[in-house]
Amino acid sequence: MTATAAVTRVEEPAQTGSSFAIRTTDLTRRFGDHVAVNSVSLSVPRGAVYGFLGPNGSGKTTTIRLLLGLMQANSGSVEMLGEQMPRRSAAVLPRVGTLVEGPAFYPYLSGRSNLRRLDAFDATSDRRTSNARIDAALDRVGLTAAAGKNYRRYSLGMKQRLGLAAALLQPRDLLILDEPTNGLDPQGTREVRTLIRDLAADGSTVLVSSHLLAEIEQVATHVGIMSAGTLLKQGTLAEVLSGTAALLRVDTTAISQAIGVLEQLGLSIDHIAPDYVTAKIGDVPAEKVNAALVHAGVPVRGLALQQPALEDMFVELTGKGYDVVR
């Protein structure tokens, strides 16, 4: 996979670690015979919105747990905000807001009391500004009205919002958000998207894991795609998508004739249906194909250029099956 190699190549920063919010080197974690995270070298540039993609069970959450020091790696290293992890977690983690594998709070405490407890445990938080910061965080995620309600009585979307509020209790240089839109309605999903954009605009780096590809495509500047514990591809969104060819769709009744013309032009056929055909267009201009088809007398009913979507890339890399990859 030469394309992958080209994309995953990382320019060495001038000063070690200065231009990356997260950088892992050959991070590996095994559970018995199962390699959950296999030699993953993640590079998240500072200021990026990094979409961390992969099917269920591909090792995204384990990687995040390794980043945060919740689990120990068998081998490899983690550097976060320029410091070694987990050795320097006391200095690094106060600057990192996290949402790991869904929100988790004490069910018998209110949303506000839950945030108060987290803030009380933070060695870097200023107790004089505690209430103001908690109110601001609740307001930012639209949870002010329900702040006094017991967490037990929260809906899934409200729980998710409280999790985001916890990540926003302090100004953060880095946010690690694992499936932040899980359980949110379309309105909530939009709000989270706006939130991520705002955070990035304020200069924070955001790593957001998701299986909602369209979601990621709208906010991410960079993506990394995991499958079966391996980081298949990473880079800027454009770099990663460039590996996937745009498709040309020709709607016609004369399928075989059309295929002949397309192949003559050097296009490789992707899919043949009774009334249309698609082909990877490569570098050939679409207008040239159009002219050739007309010249050959192919009755064209429709001609459409389909730009690659992240979903196509994703499916191409990780397979179409619904099975959980072990």
Binding site: L70, L93, P94, E101, F105
Partner: peptide
């Protein structure tokens, strides 16, 4: 069991 352990540890609390 509530999952709050992981959030306390990432606050972080040693």
């Amino acid at each position: 069991s509530t999952g709050t352990l992981r959030y306390l540890l990432t606050v972080p609390v040693s």
